[in-house]
Amino acid sequence: MEIPYVVDERADTGLTNVKLGIWLFLASEVMLFGGLFSTYILLRINAIEWPFGADILSVPIGAFNTVVLILSSVTMVLCYAALKLDDFSGYKRYMGMTVGLAVLFLVVKSYEYYDKFSHGDVPAVSTYLAIYFTLTGLHALHIVGGVIVNGYFLGPGSKLWHANRQQFINRIEAAGLYWHFVDLVWIFLFPVLYLL
């Protein structure tokens, strides 16, 4: 017996397995970052002095990275739309851009880390830097995960398109949901860490 609802939606729930699965995974991710945001708030109200993010971090670099991630989210949703239009080369183009922008984000982030480390601003210096490195580090790991997944669907994983189009679209939709979530987390991280 085959596992049902891999390709088509189940009639009464209106969902494919992978779509429900990815949303549940994202729910757990919300709780993961929730624990860290809770930590941030508690440390901040506990602190006698809390530094102003912009005094320590570079707002232009952070804003640039925000723009990069937003653009990658746009290209991600465009590659999904391209698949729906049966435009496989369009998909490849936009997916390539998504992966490229993600790598650009990581390069900029590494430069930022390097800059901080070389000035002696390591996590052990203060609770602000500690939570900054932990939150952005964990977020960067999520980006790395996204690059691996999206890179797979750009390369070897895209063979599925020729075998089973709907299943491939389902997978890209799930990958997209994950990627938009990573973008969404950054949308909150940027003001919280850089601007407040």
Partner: peptide
């Protein structure tokens, strides 16, 4: 800042 971030976040969640 949180209102703006919340708006952006809900745009991403609702449409993307």
């Amino acid at each position: 800042a949180l209102i703006i971030a919340g708006t952006k976040g809900s745009l991403v969640a609702s449409y993307f």
